[in-house]
Computed example of a mutant assay.
Amino acid sequence: MEIVEDVVIVGAGIAGLGTALGLHRLGLRSLVLEASDGLRVTGFALTMWSNAWKALDALGVRVALRRKHLLVDGAVLSSSVTGSTLSQISYQGKGKYGNRETRCVKRNVLLETLAEELPQGTIRFCSKVSSIAEDGYLKVVHLADGSIVKTKALIGCDGVNSVVAKWLRLANLVSSGRTSIRGMAEYRKPHDFSSVCLRLISNIYIDEDIQKGASKMKQFVFDNLGEVPQQVVEVVEKTDLHNILSSPLRLRWPWNVIWGENCKGNVCVAGDALHPMTPDLGQGGCSALENSVVLAKCIAEALSEGTQSINSKYEEGEYGRIKRGLEKFVKERKWRGFALVATAYVLGMTQQSNGTVMKFVRDKLLSAYLAGLIPKMADYDCGNLN
Rank of each mutant, 00 (worst) to 15 (best):
A52K: 00
V109K: 14
R25A: 03
T85Q: 15
L86N: 07
G284R: 00
S78G: 10
L110D: 01
V76S: 13
L225F: 04
G156I: 03
A20C: 11
L23H: 03
N354V: 09
M48T: 04
C104A: 14
D37S: 12
N161H: 13
F193C: 07
M217S: 05
G306E: 01
A185M: 03
W167M: 10
S176P: 01
Q219A: 12
I181W: 02
G285L: 01
Y205K: 15
S194N: 07
L170H: 03
D158M: 05
L289M: 02
H142G: 04
G213I: 07
V330I: 01
K54P: 05
L31R: 13
E208K: 15
E318S: 05
V140F: 06
K364M: 09
D379K: 03
L39I: 08
G146D: 06
L39K: 09
V32I: 11
F220M: 02
V232H: 02
T343H: 00
A144R: 15
K96A: 11
W259D: 11
S36V: 09
F222R: 08
Q308T: 12
C126R: 15
R40W: 07
N266K: 08
R29V: 10
L33P: 02
V129F: 10
S36C: 13
T343N: 01
S90D: 11
N224T: 08
G265V: 04
H24Y: 12
S353K: 01
D145Q: 14
D272G: 01
V163N: 09
P248I: 06
L46H: 06
W49L: 05
L370G: 01
T102H: 04
A75I: 07
K331M: 01
E101H: 05
H142N: 15
V228N: 03
R169A: 12
R124T: 05
E261F: 13
T42Y: 10
L70V: 15
E237T: 11
V32A: 03
G337E: 00
C157A: 14
N256C: 14
D145M: 09
L173H: 08
H142F: 12
D145T: 12
S175Q: 11
I299Y: 00
I206C: 05
G146A: 08
A302N: 01
A165L: 03
I210W: 03
S194T: 13
P229A: 01
L59I: 04
Q92Y: 12
L110F: 03
A52F: 00
S30T: 10
G348I: 00
R67C: 10
K150Y: 09
A45S: 12
R67K: 11
R188K: 14
R188M: 13
L154T: 04
K139F: 14
K128S: 10
D207L: 11
A35I: 09
